[in-house]
Design a protein around this nucleic acid. Structure first.
Length: 369
RNA sequence: GUGGGUGUAGCUCAGUUGGUUAGAGCGCCAGGUUGUGGCCCUGGAGGCCGUGGGUUCAAGCCCCAUCACUCACC
């Protein structure tokens, strides 16, 4: 269980195509994992996700623990059965939510006390508690509890958060009881190369089936982000999947794959859809722009999804301007389909040894001003 | 018909005792959004202040007339 095999490596890059085996099926990497925070990828159901070709989706520990509670999900047979998704699932640990709720959170070596965003009630997350919740939820891949330091912290703070994350990773491993779940620890260290290297070496030593790089996409610029990734990834084992958390623009994914990252999750694809934006090969666009009002062209030709090809920009703009439910659904379908198409092309070009030229061509067009 | 009220941005309205380039919210136009948020943030365009006269150095604010809408009473 949880075997990872590298099936192809790009000659001109650290990029590789791999296969990760889980109890609910194999995942071909590099993979993008759509985010389904509250056990639903907003506006989509399992049939939509299967039609899109989703291999694995995310759900969120913090949100499900607050409501309806992980015990209820366990009682209903676990996440897979409950949401009728018979494919791999990954649950986040709640570490990032602690980061987001930092105003009301008290962090100690033992864990984090925080107030629910729903009703203000006090809760306490410890590494052991977070494992218990994730075992109740029943995902295939579960994440270690971590402290995600905000961008811009000084080195002393970054070290403190990193060391706490290391101690918590060991406690998560010790608390874990289910053999059918893979625990991924999370490399921290903020923007400091020495810390990133130390953290990567520590997490690699734990011998888990995969390792995540966290603490990026928290407000830093692209250069800092990949400076941190570069420092960490050279100490991560090549025979384990590397999961870069929270990264999900097409350009960032290409840069990260180039460096050897295998797994990605990001709310952007689905959130941009809710916020009226879509990707195409020329970048990101706001569908409500007036220039689309009489544009009869499809949202994005060349993407194998009916939402991308079967409706005009004019119609989608109208749906969006009117806040129709269908707008969010179609834009969500398209944005996910766009990323899946990108991942498919990435895998194909790694296999044929043409990753670098593909990356260059894609970015030249996608990022042109 | 009589008496009262209201007319200021596309919409709902604010405009201090008359005093520089008349404001807000929403909408519209355009940016931003990377491990939660159908959100939020930042810019921009847009007004002969119902109309016509008058008083004043100066009127969205005061006076007269007129039109429109509205309420009450005959």
């Amino acid at each position: 269980m949880f075997d990872f095999t590298v099936e192809a490596s790009a000659g001109d890059s650290e990029a590789r195509v791999g296969n990760f085996r889980t109890p609910h099926g194999d995942i071909e990497t590099p993979v993008f994992m759509p985010v389904g925070t509250k056990a639903t990828v907003k506006s989509l159901d399992y049939k939509d996700l299967e039609a899109l070709g989703a291999e694995i989706i995310l759900a969120n520990t913090y949100h499900l623990a607050m409501r309806p509670g992980s015990e209820l999900v366990k009682k209903m047979g676990g996440l897979h059965k409950w949401m009728h998704w018979d494919h791999p699932i990954l649950t986040d640990s709640g570490g990032f939510q602690v980061f987001s709720l930092k105003d009301s959170a008290k962090i100690t070596d033992d864990g984090v006390e925080f107030q629910s965003h729903l009703d203000g009630n006090k809760h306490f997350f410890s590494p052991e508690k977070v494992i218990e919740i994730q075992e109740n939820l029943g995902a295939d891949i579960i994440m270690a509890f971590d402290e995600c330091a905000p961008a811009g912290v000084d080195e002393a703070y970054a070290r403190k958060a990193m060391e706490r994350t290391h101690a918590w990773a060991k406690r998560c491993l010790a608390a874990k009881t289910r053999a059918d779940q893979a625990l991924f620890p999370i490399v921290q260290g903020s923007r400091f190369a020495n810390l990133r290297e130390e953290s990567a070496q520590f997490m690699a030593s734990l011998g888990t089936p995969g390792i995540a790089i966290g603490g990026v996409s928290v407000g830093e610029d692209t250069e800092q982000k990949f400076y941190a990734v570069d420092a960490a990834i050279k100490h991560l084992p090549k025979d384990k999947p590397r999961y870069l958390m929270g990264v999900g623009t097409p350009d960032d994914i290409l840069e990260a794959v180039d460096r050897g990252c295998d797994m990605f999750d990001c709310v952007l694809a689905t959130r941009l859809a809710r916020h009226k934006s879509f990707w195409d090969f020329d970048g990101r666009h706001d569908i409500t722009n007036q220039k689309y009002s009489e544009d009869e062209s499809p949202l994005c030709a060349g993407i194998p999804c009916y939402a991308s090809t079967d409706f005009s920009k004019s119609y989608l703009r109208h749906l969006t301007m009117e806040n129709e439910l269908l707008s969010m659904r179609l834009l969500t379908l398209h944005n996910i389909a766009f990323l899946f198409h990108l991942m498919k092309q990435i895998r194909a070009h790694i296999k044929t040894g043409t990753f670098q030229s593909f990356k260059k061509d894609f970015l030249t067009r996608f990022l042109k001003a």
